[in-house]
């Protein structure tokens, strides 16, 4: 890629790179803090202040975490609902988004409007619970995957992405004898890898962060995902949200809370770097030519 090296370009690049590095550093700060506290000894933390590097290293928090099997079990639950749930999401969402991207489809506008409507109005917690219960989903992990199989937001934006794929590519596939279903899976989806990666990420993070539906739909605490525990340990410790009449909850030390945050966050953080190659420029064209 030849680049004309004018002075203007140089300045542009240098400013851009510097700014990005700066933003990156500022953004990573909270996590560095969380990470550092989790490795610091409680006595050091008690002295207060912003800790960005442990002065007195301590693995006590992690020892505590690993001494309980609850965290591992809920981690497995989280991984399961994230993987299976995201697969269901992507399948259902792309199946629905593709037809809606076709401007000639009869009734399309009505359906889109109906979908949009659900983004604004909802029946609320109790009626939804009744539906989930009537479907026989309560007390199973399906209750965390099926009731949110399609996000209206993702559906609408994905539809928009699909619309931008040139029609010519699809037509040629149709001439080869593919039905619409075939076109979606053989042509459109491979061309939409950036979009798939994006919405896959959105859905995966959504599943990973679920805690309220778990509490609502599931009675067996062995089926709780990691976020339920995280909330239990971290949010309540702050004592500002939740039932104030319950004041005898055991409050874990800050170091353990931070270690739990690290434990519960790192797996989902690792997802993004793996998806990044799909965001590389020109993916679409490359795959078509090749």
């Amino acid at each position: 890629m030849l680049q004309d090296k004018t002075i203007g370009n140089r300045i542009f690049d240098i400013t851009n790179y510097t700014l990005l590095i700066l933003i990156g550093l500022i953004c990573v700060l909270p996590f560095v803090y969380v990470l550092a506290v989790s490795f610091t000894s409680p006595a050091e933390v008690a002295k207060g202040g912003l800790i960005l590097w442990p002065k007195e290293w301590s693995l006590a928090s992690y020892r505590y975490i690993f001494s309980t099997d609850t965290l591992f079990r809920s981690m497995l639950v989280s991984i399961y609902i994230t993987v299976v749930g995201t697969f269901i999401n992507l399948l259902f969402t792309s199946l629905m988004a593709y037809p809606l991207a076709k401007a000639t489809l009869r009734g399309r506008q009505f359906i889109l409007l109906a979908v949009l409507f659900t983004m604004l109005f909802g029946g609320g917690m109790i009626p939804t619970y009744f539906v989930v219960k009537a479907m026989g989903l309560t007390n199973s992990l399906w209750s965390l995957m099926i009731p949110n199989a399609i996000s209206a937001f993702n559906l609408i934006v994905l539809k928009n992405f699909f619309q931008q794929i040139p029609d010519g590519l699809e037509d040629s596939a149709r001439i080869d004898g593919c039905t619409d279903v075939g076109v979606l899976f053989r042509i459109v989806l491979p061309l939409s890898m950036p979009a798939m990666a994006t919405f896959g990420l959105f859905y995966a993070v959504g599943h990973w962060n679920q805690f309220f539906s778990a509490i609502l739909y599931i009675n067996d605490s062995r089926l709780y995902p990691i976020q339920v525990l995280l909330r239990q340990i971290v949010i309540l410790a702050q004592g500002s949200i939740g039932d104030t009449s319950i004041d005898n909850v055991e409050i874990q030390p800050l170091t353990i809370r931070m270690a739990v945050i690290v434990f519960a966050t790192v797996p989902i953080l690792l997802v993004y770097p793996f998806l990044q190659k799909h965001f590389a420029k020109g993916v679409m064209l490359g795959s078509v030519k090749g």
């Binding site: 199946l95 109906a114 909802g122 029946g123 009626p127 949110n148």
Partner: peptide
């Protein structure tokens, strides 16, 4: 292809709308 999605929205979004 639209069918599963439509069924989903009816059951999980429109039925509880009451």
């Amino acid at each position: 292809m639209l069918l599963p999605g439509i069924i989903y929205f009816i059951i999980f979004k429109y039925v509880p709308m009451y």
